[in-house]
């Protein structure tokens, strides 16, 4: 076995942006539609990923301030949770764009190209139902977090001493990501429908 083979495989796995959709590095590669939106989401991930670094930096700041200076902050924990939550929410769309969500494709493993195309259409349709239903639910939830029962704009806050409107923000962020995933799934559906009808060999 060549020396760095498996590490290289991992690196390839991680550096998908360099492959930019051409390379077939996976048995399931034919499930990756590579729409323009997916590419954009993929690129956006580079910036969103930086939030993790921000979370590390401010957590470290909190530890130092608390341990060395006996001056814990009131804002770090909540900010870290919000940063990570947004990354998690966006991570769903990001993994959808890269088609890296984990699946058990038992039928796919034995299927030929034609059946795979059908499965792609079915899966894209299901992903669309998922994003639409969850997106609708997230919309209802977000509306309640942004608008008080009296009908005024009033953002849900955390209720802590710092009391930032982060719950309302995270809920809105989740909604945005779900809408994004819905549009992604819709474009996938269009892509696979075209693929299974138009480009039959």
């Amino acid at each position: 076995m060549p020396d760095r083979a498996s590490s290289a495989a991992i690196a390839r796995h991680g550096d998908q942006e360099q492959a930019d959709g051409e390379a077939v590095y996976d048995l399931l590669a034919d499930t990756r539609p590579v729409t323009a939106l997916d590419r954009r989401v993929d690129r956006l991930g580079r910036y969103v990923g930086v939030l993790f670094l921000v979370a590390v930096a401010i957590s470290f700041y909190e530890i130092v301030m608390r341990y060395a200076f006996n001056a814990p902050t009131i804002w770090v924990h909540e900010t870290v949770i919000a940063l990570v939550a947004v990354c998690y929410a966006f991570g769903g769309a990001f993994a959808l764009a890269r088609d890296s969500h984990i699946r058990i494709g038992l039928i796919r493993a034995v299927a030929g190209p034609r059946v795979r195309k059908i499965l792609n259409v079915v899966n894209a349709a299901m992903a669309l139902v998922f994003a639409a239903a969850l997106g609708w639910a997230a919309y209802l939830m977000t509306r309640k977090a942004w608008i008080s029962p009296a009908g005024e704009l009033s953002l849900d806050r955390s209720g802590s001493a710092w009391n930032p409107p982060l719950p309302a923000m995270i809920k809105a962020g989740l909604l945005v990501c779900l809408v994004l995933m819905g549009v992604q799934a819709l474009l996938h559906l269009v892509h696979w429908l075209r693929d299974s009808m138009g480009r039959e060999h």
Binding site: R66, N70, A71, P72, I74, V76, H77, E78, S160, A161, W162
Partner: peptide, 8 residues
């Protein structure tokens, strides 16, 4: 009251 509350 002078304490340093930690959010845990």
């Amino acid at each position: 009251a002078g304490a340093a509350p930690v959010n845990l």
